[in-house]
């Protein structure tokens, strides 16, 4: 399925280097892999010798607070959106970036559609696995649609209030 990678500050359609491994299946010997939160909690000690990047997948009801001490070992957190209405992981992503200072990839999976990804990016997501059948190239245009933001978020774009109240010389330059 199409993957939009926003890791470099520009959206790019990317080949996915990662494999999502089901519970009970073997981890690939040569590729980065994600596993479920449950599996991570059961196997994290045994995985300490693995030399490839690891990621953990959270379902929408699962909390990142369960694995805070493990974050330095993880290169990716995948947050699942089971449907269009479940917005819990918008909060999770902001906490990961703003409170827990997670520097790896925060990836949106599941029902990820073009019209949510700009809000997701503002919350700190930097990779988007679009829902099956959706066109990644046209979806990337969604990041350009709204250029004014009113509230501070994980993307650290200047808010409207910050832009209004800048010292005059900066306002001219900006």
């Amino acid at each position: 399925m199409p993957l939009i990678d926003y890791g470099n500050g520009n959206p790019a359609i990317a080949d996915d280097a990662w494999t999502h491994v089901a519970d009970g299946a073997a981890l690939p010997p040569d590729r980065p892999a994600t596993i479920s939160l449950e599996r991570w909690k059961a196997e994290r000690d045994g995985l300490s010798g693995r030399n490839l990047p690891l990621g953990v997948r959270l379902e929408s009801h699962e909390r990142i607070e369960e694995i805070l001490p493990d974050l330095p070992r993880l290169a990716l957190i995948a947050l699942d959106f089971p449907n269009l209405n479940d917005g819990r992981h918008f909060t999770t992503a902001r906490l990961l970036r703003e409170r827990y200072r997670f520097g790896g990839q925060v990836r949106a999976t599941g029902q990820v559609l073009r019209d949510q990804i700009d809000l997701m990016r503002r919350c700190g997501f930097d990779a988007f696995e679009l829902a099956p059948g959706k066109d990644g190239a046209s979806a990337a245009a969604a990041f350009e649609e709204i250029s004014v933001v009113y509230q501070p978020a994980a993307d650290t774009r200047p808010t409207a209030a910050q832009r209004r109240n800048r010292p005059p010389e900066q306002a001219v330059a900006g």
């Binding site: 479940d86 917005g87 809000l119 503002r122 009113y150 509230q151």
Partner: peptide, 9 residues
Amino acid sequence: TLHPEFSFL
């Protein structure tokens, strides 16, 4: 308005 975190409450 267009709050990114609270658009899917």
